[in-house]
Write a protein that binds this DNA or RNA. Structure first.
Lengths: 116, 116
DNA sequence: GTAATCAGTATCACAGAGTATACCAACTAC
DNA sequence: GTAGTTGGTATACTCTGTGATACTGATTAC
């Protein structure tokens, strides 16, 4: 009985985990979410804030994220056209994951440096 | 000044985030870590606990994770050879990330179901 | 007039992550 | 004797995420 409960729990956990990985998988989604949640609004601004990303990848990911309601894209069609990206409440639900990962990255760096 | 501090902070955050993504990237590492931390020790046991994984991917990832000191592999060479995988303390440092991701997966499922 | 910025799009190409399938030798269970 | 388990390896293949490079038209700045 305890065993069965444990097994079911594990199966449910893995699935939840795999769902999450599916949604935020890849190199760029979390860094982009993080950037926008940090207040970066303009395309080039976001681009500059993420080391290594290319225009193409940013463009693709933003498009997908807009479709999935992760970001809101607004166009101000004044003389020099201006585009702004904003995070949605849904986007902010990744906060804990991102924080945990930033924290891990910091600890990992310390660890590496101590080792060397 | 406040601006400069903010910028430096952001840059450091992204790098930490990207480091973490680099280490645990891909479809399988986190599910495997989770499985082993949950007490699964045998190869086939781990395999069965992760929906969709193939023998080959598990084998590859375990090998890599052993090299990176994420898991410990022990062979008991008794009549039917027995192999056991264990999590290392280092492996357990991913706990917070995994928990946050499981939590997100659960909420996401609720969200999807409510929507439908 | 030249360079730079903005918000992207268009092509091309590739490595490597991931999949599919079969197979091995040793052992157990029926 | 035959089917199943264990801990994997071998081979072949797909596919797509990612990268590199170039380009656009409008605008501003020198």
């Amino acid at each position: 009985m305890a065993k069965a409960a444990l097994v079911r729990n594990q199966a449910e956990e893995v699935k939840a985990l795999q769902d999450t990985i599916y949604v935020i998988g890849g190199k760029w989604k979390l860094p982009i979410i993080n950037s926008i949640c940090n207040g970066n609004k303009r395309f080039r601004e976001i681009e500059r804030s993420i080391p290594g990303i290319t225009t193409r990848m940013l463009s693709r990911e933003l498009k997908e994220m807009e479709m999935n309601k992760l970001v809101k894209r607004t166009v101000y069609p004044d003389s020099p056209v201006l585009v702004e990206y904003e995070s949605t409440p849904y986007c902010k639900t990744f906060g804990n994951i991102i924080l945990a990962m930033i924290e891990w990255g910091r600890e990992h760096k310390k660890y590496i440096q101590e080792e060397a």
